[in-house]
């Protein structure tokens, strides 16, 4: 998991252990360490800022309540992102009207726009951001976990609750899909 340092994982496991004993300070540290990551991960999946924020709060509340049941079989980050993924998929099942997604799409586009918009990399980034929106939530989840959160195959499998081979297949097809979308939009995939 990003940044995938063992020291981070050990520190987070310790915070979670203290949280399980009702230590509010440890929980607050854990919250600060995860709020941005969880929010961005949720936003990547649900594409709705308000909903992503709601999910982030719910996830951390579940972490607080469920910490005594964390058995330490997996990394703290895997467990926490597993809860987040489950909540996002659950929220997507109770899908809100399409216009919300379009509205958020606009927000994300605005967020990525900048003065150097004409630069090639910036153009590629924008195109990639838009292409990601066209992927299914399952494909988006595995790509975000792999490329943004730096999860290993096993961690991704644990988070999305499916076998490692399924994760590989999903990443493969997500990659294929991204290529097709970028090609359709005439975006050069190779480095200039």
């Amino acid at each position: 998991m990003q940044p995938a340092h063992d020291a981070d994982a050990t520190r987070e496991a310790e915070w979670l252990r203290l949280t399980a004993r009702g230590d509010r300070a440890a929980f607050e540290r854990l919250f600060r360490a995860y709020e941005h990551r969880l929010y961005r991960f949720s936003l990547g999946l649900v594409r709705d800022q308000q909903l992503a924020e709601e999910i982030t709060g719910d996830v951390m509340l579940d972490v607080w309540r469920g910490a005594p049941r964390f058995r330490g079989d997996a990394k703290a980050s895997t467990w926490i992102f597993g809860i987040a993924h489950h909540k996002c998929i659950d929220a997507l099942r109770r899908r809100r009207p399409e216009h919300v997604e379009l509205q958020t799409l606009q927000t994300v586009r605005d967020a990525t726009a900048g003065p150097e918009e004409l630069a090639v990399e910036e153009s590629f980034r924008r195109a990639l951001g838009d292409a990601m929106l066209e992927l299914t939530p399952e494909h988006r989840a595995v790509l975000e976990l792999t490329f943004i959160n730096g999860c290993s195959q096993a961690e991704t499998a644990a988070i999305v609750a499916c076998p490692v081979n399924t994760v590989k297949t999903r990443v493969f097809y997500a990659k294929q899909q991204l290529r097709r979308i970028l090609d359709r939009r005439g975006v050069r995939r190779e480095m200039p």
Binding site: E35, Y39, L61, R65, L128, F147
Partner: peptide, 30 residues
């Protein structure tokens, strides 16, 4: 590119922390 996009993405509102901690106060641990 995805990392860049992630860095540019907006963060949660500052009130989320306080709101969640307020909810934590009312929730017992399992």
């Amino acid at each position: 590119a995805m990392h860049e996009l992630d860095q540019d993405a907006p963060g949660p509102s500052e009130s989320l922390f306080a709101r969640t901690l307020a909810r934590v106060d009312t929730q017992p641990q399992r």
